[in-house]
Design a protein around this nucleic acid. Structure first.
Length: 335
DNA sequence: CGATTTTGACCCGCGC
DNA sequence: GCGCGGGTCAAAATCG
């Protein structure tokens, strides 16, 4: 199984964006352009760019999960082999040695060029929920043991049947199926970024070697078992790592209400199938584990733009649109 | 008062 | 088999 980690660098329209994001040149009039490809080309590269109209599509359906991966690949006339397994981002914080190369077992924070670019020294700020993992945890040990015993006794009396049944049912069925996952990184002060869906928090865990906890969310829609994990990078506290697991089986509540303003955070990405990018780029499955994304949003005209490049590929992808609906994606030939 | 968050305990897989 | 860490549960607390 290959990993497919997906980086998304969201930066405001403000400082630094011009340095890293080719769509935003010196001329602010570009921001008011409709998403017509030539108008948003990087002025520095326009001579070399050659766009491929056949690769042009709208993102709208992708954004709201109404297309499955096969449909998407068909739309592009590409085969969607079963080998395009989605993502299982390998997040192993135990590994203190950093892999500098792109590997199949990618840990989003550590391997991302974005992380390097924005690396800062994190001085762990006291966080009540986190600091309790060290000293307090020791003190909690004894009392928790007592509680444990009490609970166990209680369970033996009343809960045993139930839990046993559940265990059996789980064992009867197949192994817990791991849903497709993908992770992306977002430069944001807000931890839980608006993506149009409604989530309920169901857990929080301290992450080893990190002062920041990891939060677990579930989609509140019934029978939708999509999960989301949100954690802040311990290497760069300005970066939020979001990991989605599964696909929504329903429409996005925000768009049903006619409210698409959540796109202002450029968080259209979570529902965009990552393997589509590798398919568009003709990236071999073995190399599809790392996509680097830059994105930006113009609050003045509600346009968002992004660029995707894949290391090891000569191609890159451009996309954008408005938060009203229009959105697009474009494959760029190598220069 | 229902929905959501908090949080300690539990479960499970994995490495040693 | 044991310990560790990630993920989940579920009762209590809090919110709107």
């Amino acid at each position: 199984m290959s990993d497919n980690t997906f980086y998304h660098d969201y930066m405001g329209i403000g400082g630094g964006i011009n340095n890293t994001f080719p769509f935003f040149g010196e001329n602010p009039s570009n921001y008011n352009d409709q998403p017509i490809i030539p108008n948003i080309q990087n002025p520095n590269h326009h001579e070399h760019q050659q766009f491929v109209p056949s690769s042009y599509m709208t993102l709208t359906e992708c954004l709201h999960g109404s297309m499955d991966y096969n449909t998407l690949s068909n739309a592009f006339g590409m085969s969607c082999s079963s080998s395009s397994e989605v993502v299982r981002p390998h997040i192993d914080n135990q590994d203190s040695t950093r892999k500098s190369s792109i590997s199949a077992t990618t840990e989003p924070v550590l391997d991302s060029p974005l992380g390097d670019k924005t690396r800062v020294v994190i001085s762990p700020t006291p966080n009540s929920s986190i600091s309790s993992t060290s000293n307090e945890a020791v003190g909690q040990e004894d009392s928790s043991k007592i509680k444990k015993h009490v609970q166990e006794k209680g369970r033996q009396q009343e809960g045993e049947d139930k839990s046993k049944k559940e265990c059996k049912e789980k064992k009867k069925g197949e192994k817990k199926v791991k849903e497709p996952r993908f992770a992306f990184m977002t430069k944001s002060e807000i931890d839980n970024l608006e993506d149009g869906y409604r989530w309920r928090k169901y857990g929080q865990k301290a992450v080893k070697n990190s002062p920041f906890p990891r939060n677990y969310y579930r989609c509140t829609t019934q029978k939708c078992n999509v999960k989301k994990r949100v954690e802040r990078s311990y290497e760069d506290s300005s970066i939020v790592i979001t990991t989605y697991e599964g696909q929504h089986n329903h429409h996005c509540p925000a768009t049903l209400r006619g409210n698409a303003s959540f796109l202002s955070s450029s968080h259209f990405m979570p529902n965009f199938p990552p393997q589509l990018f590798s398919q568009m780029l003709n990236i071999p499955p073995t190399n599809q584990n790392l996509l680097i994304t830059s994105a930006a949003y113009n609050n003045n005209n509600n346009n968002y733009y992004y660029q995707q490049q894949h290391q090891g590929s000569e191609y890159s992808l451009f996309g954008g649109g408005t938060n009203n609906d229009a959105s697009w994606i474009q494959k760029q030939e190598p220069s």
